[in-house]
Design a protein around this nucleic acid. Structure first.
Length: 752
DNA sequence: TCCGCCTAGGTTTTT
DNA sequence: CCTAGGCGGA
């Protein structure tokens, strides 16, 4: 047997060795799907004899792509891996377009606009069309257009389809937005995919090239593909049909980004000769974690592929549930628990991850971690490349590559300040629009006296504009002769960046920002081996497409703080999921829509299944948001986990922060207890608490997160429960307010 | 044009 | 709470 199959289970081997033709692998979390993907590539090269040059693999992040290449290098050697093409849809499309965009009437040196650039451009469009920015927020318009692009709806079609007045406005913005993109020789994120599809559809000879080149196509996280990505795959695979996709509909969490779960659900209709393989054995988590996660996902009404996950990893410890008084106490609990685990010698800081729904939740965590001197790394939040001084510097570099990039041009036209204020800037935009030329060309008009004569500028403003134009021209000349590093040095000198930072900020802050700029400079050495003309474009492309998670350091001995979305595909021995509250998870913007709500549920499922050995869930009793403190309600998803699967502190109360010792108990998780509970309770949901107590005397029988019904107050969620003089005092959050009830007295029914 | 103070409004999630 | 944009004064 091939040594590439060693260590794989039967199902994995079948997937790795599947005959050519369309293959769909439905793989639960922790089932080794990345491993299968990697080994299949190795298998194709080594055993089937496929030229690595003819294999194209699509991953979800650049980081995943890099790791896959590294694993393959270890598996089959560097020489066979080098010719392989691995990347994300976006980075691959950027690369392909760089090669073939000429067929679309575009220049090679296009720039890629990120969300910030997109918003700036849209703001310009809205002003130009004399629309009210309050009524038509650029972000909102932009997101509608993005949605349209994900569905491959072009401006003309959008205008035809539109129903509401708002749509009509969007349609007008869409048309102008695309014009300005083209004029700037820019693609936004969505365009990279859309234009690639268009290229394939309109130029069969180009597609034929890709068919010849890429005979084998492999796609990871197929459940997260949107319509454009789906069509790209379809185009690329239609001739050779050697398509191998891996995914899990239970882990689909990017619907808001246009991902269409139907792509994976309908794979068998799209490819009738497809083989479908199932990977159900989980190698990552303990049974306790898996059971709790399955309980959450089982609560979903609409699952198509019902996978039954199992593991041989052993029962493990109970999943813990903690209630914090507020977000600070919650964070303190997490940090103290991490310290306890590390002190016990079972885990290192690098084994621990804290996951949350929104980035804003990281603030309290950072304070707690920093306050206790615990090393941590924050993934996300503001990206390095999102810092103002970095964006400004990069804007100059983009202009050097492509002076038609109007967003970058306008971004730095008055940075550092050179006497071109809002008024002059708006005049320039208006005048360029009137002439029907890009901003750069309008600036060049000012060079000759005839053009200047027709311009709306006085001589002082004209000189300021010409001064800026000179910088633009100098940058372009410099770009042709200098390496990337030298170009950055030239730029910093030419526009006096350091002096500008010192003028605008205090000495201390200027120092920080200058250091950031220097860090950007130091990144440039990574490109020094490329030919000079390729250094700048490659660098700019990575600046635009490299994600936060791509910069994460897995080896660091530090706690990882990360959003649930970014955590997809990762795993950690110890995972804390915090903020499991109504309004946060599920997020308040998702609670009124059935599909969105289901996506929130899957998000929790994804988070839970990141854990290998220990999983902690927590929520806060009250939470501050927007500077205001609100009472919170435990997430509805918590009530889908049978209480016997959870371990909670026995004593409640928020007074001290020294409660963390409550988790010191090391009792193991018992599968049979859990299954007995779930089978026994499912038949009698809604029955009142029976006379025989489930726990012995002195134990609480209601748990935070449970949903209950009361004769007078209606439905509510248990916030906490404690023993008072031998009776159980249950705090329940009802629709109107929170009430404390004595369980011997009040009739509380548990509901499913 | 620039600077600083003020307030209103905003937070999903990301390539 | 925080921040980007508006507005008044120099």
């Amino acid at each position: 047997m091939s040594d590439l199959l060693q260590g794989l289970n039967e199902a994995q081997r079948r997937a790795v060795q599947a005959t050519t033709g369309p293959v769909l692998v439905l793989a639960g979390p922790g089932s080794g799907k990345t491993r299968v993907l990697t080994h299949r590539i190795a298998y194709l090269i080594r055993e089937v004899g496929i030229d690595p040059y003819q294999i194209l693999a699509v991953t979800f992040t650049n980081k995943a792509a890099r790791e896959m290449k590294e694993r393959l290098e270890a598996l089959i050697g560097v020489e066979d891996t080098a010719a392989l093409t691995v990347g994300t849809f976006h980075s691959l499309c950027a690369r392909f377009l760089r090669r073939d965009c000429i067929h679309l009437g575009r220049e090679r040196d296009f720039v890629i606009y990120d969300s910030d650039d997109q918003e700036r451009l849209m703001r310009r469009v809205i002003r130009e069309l004399n629309l009210d920015e309050k009524k038509y927020p650029p972000r909102a318009i932009q997101s509608h257009i993005s949605g349209a692009k994900n569905e491959l709806v072009d401006p003309q079609e959008y205008a035809r389809l539109n129903r509401t007045y708002f749509d009509e406005i969007v349609a007008r913005c869409y048309v102008r937005y695309q014009q300005l993109l083209a004029e700037s020789n820019a693609y936004d994120f969505d365009d990279l995919l859309v234009e690639m599809v268009r290229l394939f559809a309109e130029h069969p000879e180009v597609l034929a090239h890709y068919h010849r080149r890429y005979q084998y196509l492999l796609v990871d996280e197929y459940q997260d593909t949107n319509r454009a990505q789906y069509l790209l795959v379809k185009h690329l695979a239609e001739l050779n049909r050697n398509l191998f996709v891996v995914g899990d509909d239970d882990q689909s969490v990017y619907g808001w980004r246009g991902a269409d779960i139907r792509n994976i659900l309908q794979f068998e209709q799209d490819y009738p000769d497809a083989q479908v393989l199932l990977l159900e054995q989980n190698y990552r988590s303990t049974q306790a974690i898996l059971d709790a996660a399955q309980a959450v996902i089982a609560g979903s009404g609409k699952r198509k592929h019902l996978k039954q996950l199992w593991t041989e990893n052993g029962a493990g410890l109970h999943v813990s549930l903690h209630e914090g008084y507020d977000q600070n106490e919650e964070a303190n609990f997490v940090v103290e628990e991490i310290n306890r685990l590390v002190a016990a010698g079972d885990f290192g800081y690098g084994d621990c991850a804290i996951m949350y729904r929104i980035n804003a939740q990281s603030r309290a965590l950072e304070e707690a971690l920093f306050g206790r001197g615990v090393p941590y790394q924050l993934v996300g939040g503001t990206r390095f490349y999102d810092r103002k001084e970095i964006k400004d510097t990069v804007a100059y570099l983009r202009i050097a590559a492509n002076p038609y990039d109007s967003v970058s041009l306008l971004r730095v036209i008055n940075w550092p300040g050179r006497g071109i204020g809002d008024r002059s800037e708006n005049e320039l935009i208006r005048w360029a629009g009137e002439l029907g030329v890009p901003i750069y060309q309008a600036l060049k008009e000012l060079e000759n006296d005839a053009g200047a004569q027709r311009s709306p500028f006085n001589s002082r403003t004209r000189n300021a504009l010409l001064g800026f134009l000179q910088i633009v021209e100098d940058m372009q000349a410099a770009r042709r002769r200098l390496s990337l590093g030298d170009l950055i040095d030239y730029l910093l000198e030419r526009v006096a960046v350091r002096e500008a930072l010192e003028r605008e900020h205090g000495a201390d802050e200027a120092e920080d920002r200058w250091n950031n700029v220097q860090e950007l400079r130091s990144v440039s050495v990574e490109y020094v081996n490329l030919p000079i003309e390729a250094q700048l474009p490659t660098f700019l492309e990575e600046v635009a497409l490299v994600a936060n998670v791509d910069r994460m350091d897995r080896e660091a001995n530090a706690v990882t703080c990360i959003t649930l979305h970014q955590a997809k595909g990762l795993e950690y021995p110890v995972v804390f999921l915090i903020g499991l509250e109504e309004g946060l998870l599920p997020h308040s913007r998702s609670t009124d829509d059935r599909d969105k709500l289901e996506e929130e549920r899957r998000l929790l499922y994804v988070g839970m299944t990141r854990a290998r050995q220990r999983l902690y869930l927590s929520y806060a009793f009250r939470r501050m948001s927007f500077g205001r403190t609100n009472m919170s309600t435990p997430s509805r998803f918590l009530s889908t986990i049978p209480p016997v699967m959870l371990k909670q502190p026995k004593k409640r109360g928020f007074a001290s922060s020294g409660q963390t010792q409550m988790f010191t108990e090391r009792s193991g998780y018992s599968r049979s207890t859990a299954s007995r509970w779930s089978s026994g309770s499912s038949g009698s949901s809604g029955s009142s608490r029976g006379s025989e107590q489930s726990g012995g005397p002195g134990e609480v029988t209601f748990f935070a997160g449970q949903r209950v019904r009361h004769g007078t107050f209606g439905e509510g969620v248990v916030m906490s429960s404690r023993l008072v003089d031998g009776d159980e005092e249950v705090t329940v959050s009802f629709a109107d307010r929170e009430r404390r009830l004595l369980s011997s007295f009040a009739k509380l029914q548990r509901i499913a």
